[in-house]
Simulated assay, not measured.
Amino acid sequence: MIKDTNKTAAEQAPGEDRLKLAATAMRANKMLHAKGNEQSEKNNLVHSDKVEEIIKEWPATAKMAAENTMKFYGSPNEATESYLIWFNNGPWKRTVAFRDEVPHDFPEPHSDVLEQFIDYHVPADKAGLIAELEGSLVIDRTKGEVSVHCDNEGANTLSINMMHDVVTGKRTPEEAREFIKKEIVEYLMDRPAPYAEKIQFELPEEKQWDPDVTIVKDKELMQAVAEKQIELGLK
């Protein structure tokens, strides 16, 4: 428990707790590398009555996005007062409908309430180009994920497709933004808009983790960690 609310938990964490967590996390790292890229399944569903109770006071756009998602993918796998979460729904690794709206003016004014994730590796030298494309695209290289948030799945699908085109060199960020400008109109007007209706590339079947490389090799620390792992029964 934090004793001084003017200081962070990081400042006040006892040295013993810091080393204990490091020893446990290093053991977990080893096991994860050994286990490989197995995909986890989450099949529990939240009862629809509970979901309806949660979202009844949500803002209109957030509530509608949640209802639209449930219409096609059923009840979420997890629910809190501010989030609904689906796992492995359609092409998505994870979908999150969230209560608290974020204003977004590209490509047209709306509020972001729906975030969707795919497994995808973005090379470090391409990350800046994705930032130029659109601010709602979020790269997590360590997890090997890309997410995008908007107000509807069509817009998210369109942005993911354009992200892939930029990474693969098919389009520049400027060309992709211009394409989004035209394609989103077609989608919203219920005309053919394939880039907003379906992901246009093959998604990876395995996790796209990018664990980077180890640069901390301090002998004193590693010895302390090894001793702590023995003490905790991790070795």
Rank of each mutant, 00 (worst) to 15 (best):
S111K: 15
M189I: 00
A131R: 13
P59G: 13
D100T: 15
D17T: 09
S82E: 11
R18V: 14
D49W: 07
E197D: 08
Y195A: 07
R177Q: 14
L137M: 07
L129D: 11
L221C: 10
D210M: 09
D190N: 13
K126V: 08
L19W: 06
Q208S: 15
G36S: 08
N77Q: 12
F72R: 06
A97E: 02
A28T: 10
H164I: 02
W86Y: 08
N88T: 15
N161W: 00
K198A: 12
M64A: 13
E67T: 06
T157K: 01
K56F: 05
D49F: 09
P14D: 11
A23N: 04
D4W: 02
K93L: 12
T24P: 00
V96S: 04
P173C: 07
M26S: 05
P192D: 00
A28H: 06
T157P: 00
G74L: 05
S48A: 11
E101W: 02
M31Q: 15
H149R: 12
N68K: 12
P109D: 09
K63D: 02
E178G: 00
L129Y: 08
D125M: 09
F179T: 07
C150S: 14
K219Q: 15
F87S: 05
S82A: 10
E202G: 02
V213W: 10
P194T: 03
D151E: 14
A155K: 02
G36Q: 09
T61D: 05
T61C: 02
D125S: 06
E108Q: 09
T142Y: 06
G169E: 05
N29Q: 12
A9K: 12
T172K: 10
E57M: 06
G233T: 07
H164P: 01
V113P: 01
T168Q: 14
N29R: 15
S136K: 08
P192E: 00
E11K: 05
I139K: 02
V216A: 12
R27V: 05
N37K: 11
A13G: 00
R94A: 06
A60Y: 04
S159E: 04
A13T: 15
N44K: 14
A226T: 08
N152E: 12
N37F: 06
F201G: 04
M64F: 06
F106E: 13
K170P: 01
E134A: 10
P103M: 07
G90K: 08
I180D: 00
K93H: 11
D105Q: 14
A23C: 07
F98G: 14
R27Y: 06
T168R: 09
R141Q: 12
N156K: 05
P192N: 00
T142V: 15
A10I: 10
P14H: 14
